[in-house]
Simulated assay, not measured.
Amino acid sequence: MAARPGSVTFVAVLTYINGILNVVGGVILLIARDQVAAPTGGGVAGVTTAAIVSILLGVIVIIVARGLLRGSSGARVVVTVVMIVDILNGVLLLFTNQVASGVVQILWSLLIVVLLFTRRANGFFAGR
């Protein structure tokens, strides 16, 4: 059984942080959607959709992040899929003229996916 590499622990911490930030950011965006949509020119529906997707993804990520620490391949797959959806949500943010938020969300999610598939991480998840 392979020892858990530091990169997997780091990814689990980033994943928890990502989930919390998605929920908090989604709630804030949902509350302030009228103020965000008007000045940016993005539609209220687009901002509302991005907020709800952020909240849902955040909850899912928080739930499965623990599995990463245990070496669960299922958790790895779920987090990877959620990060891909998170990247798509970041692209949606770009189209609602929230460029900074979208870029940060895309880069953060890409970092998590890349670190989940390093050689040592692959060995850890294969050994479970």
Rank of each mutant, 00 (worst) to 15 (best):
G43K: 03
G43M: 08
G43E: 15
G43L: 09
V44P: 01
A45C: 00
G46A: 01
G46D: 01
V47M: 04
A50F: 12
A51V: 02
A51Y: 03
I52R: 08
I52W: 12
I52T: 11
I52G: 12
I52N: 03
V53P: 08
S54V: 04
S54H: 07
I55E: 03
I55G: 11
L56P: 04
L56W: 03
G58V: 04
V59C: 09
V59D: 05
V59A: 11
I60Q: 14
I60V: 14
I60Y: 04
I60C: 14
I60H: 10
V61W: 09
I62Q: 08
I62T: 07
I63D: 02
R66Y: 13
R66P: 01
G67W: 08
L68M: 05
L68V: 12
L68N: 11
L68S: 04
L69Q: 13
L69W: 14
L69F: 15
L69S: 11
R70A: 13
R70V: 12
R70L: 11
G71M: 03
G71H: 06
G71A: 00
S73N: 15
S73A: 03
S73C: 13
G74N: 05
G74K: 11
G74W: 12
A75C: 10
A75E: 08
R76H: 08
V77Y: 07
V77M: 14
V79D: 02
T80I: 01
T80M: 00
T80R: 00
T80C: 09
T80G: 12
V81S: 10
V82D: 01
V82G: 01
M83S: 13
M83D: 10
I84D: 00
I84Q: 04
D86V: 09
I87L: 09
L88P: 00
L88A: 13
N89I: 03
N89P: 11
N89E: 15
G90Q: 05
G90F: 06
V91P: 07
V91C: 02
L92P: 08
L92N: 12
L92K: 07
L93M: 12
L93A: 08
L94M: 15
L94F: 08
L94P: 08
L94T: 12
F95W: 13
T96W: 15
N97T: 00
N97M: 10
